[in-house]
């Protein structure tokens, strides 16, 4: 009989297709899972960004991973609330992101202003040389979840996970 803990352990091996260093559990996309008495598994996932094109692939990978390991029936449900936040990414996963070359997200700062021009950014550390003398190039990077930064110390461009 499959247990909930086992389901989570298996899902630790399902990686985000765009950030393959993080599992879907570490990313916070997997919210919960239940195993019914007849062994049917239900997994709740929440999308990162509304338009994240990786979500369909993530849902399919979750279902496939569980079926391959013998779960007889798998249902993946999408939940929207509470809204996904990078605050759910645990410390250990942040270290993996940095080692992979992506600056991990800082803490989400409550922001009441609508048009906070000249927004104060928390210092983002360069994943290559670890300098905090860095500057934001654009809030829109190669994927919805990342922004493009540049290190003023080692002059390397790098991607940073947006705190959201």
């Amino acid at each position: 009989m499959v247990t909930r803990e086992q389901v989570f352990a298996w899902l630790e091996e399902v990686k985000d297709p765009e950030v393959p260093v993080l599992s879907v559990v570490e990313l916070g996309v997997v919210r919960d899972a239940q195993v019914a008495p007849d062994g049917a598994v239900t997994v709740q996932v929440t999308p990162t960004y509304s338009g994240c094109p990786a979500m369909r692939v993530i849902e399919e990978s979750i279902a496939e991973a569980l079926r391959l390991r013998g779960a007889p029936r798998v249902t993946v449900q999408t939940v929207y609330s509470p809204a996904w936040t990078t605050d759910w990414i645990p410390e250990a996963a942040r270290a993996k992101l940095e080692a992979y070359g992506i600056a991990p997200p800082g803490a989400v700062v409550a922001d009441d202003s609508l048009v906070p021009l000249r927004r104060a950014h928390a210092a983002v550390r360069c994943p290559w040389c670890k300098s905090t003398r860095t500057s934001l190039q654009t809030e829109f990077g190669s994927t919805s979840c990342k922004a493009l930064w540049r290190c003023e110390e080692c002059r390397q461009p790098f991607e940073a996970f947006k705190a959201i």
Binding site: S50, S81, A83, L114, V115, P116, L117, E139
Partner: peptide, 20 residues
């Protein structure tokens, strides 16, 4: 409520980008 809470985060940075 769930969709709105999610979309709010996105619209905020759209507005920031376009406002600038």
């Amino acid at each position: 409520a769930g969709i709105a809470a999610k979309a709010l985060k996105e619209s905020k940075y759209h507005v920031r980008h376009c406002g600038e």
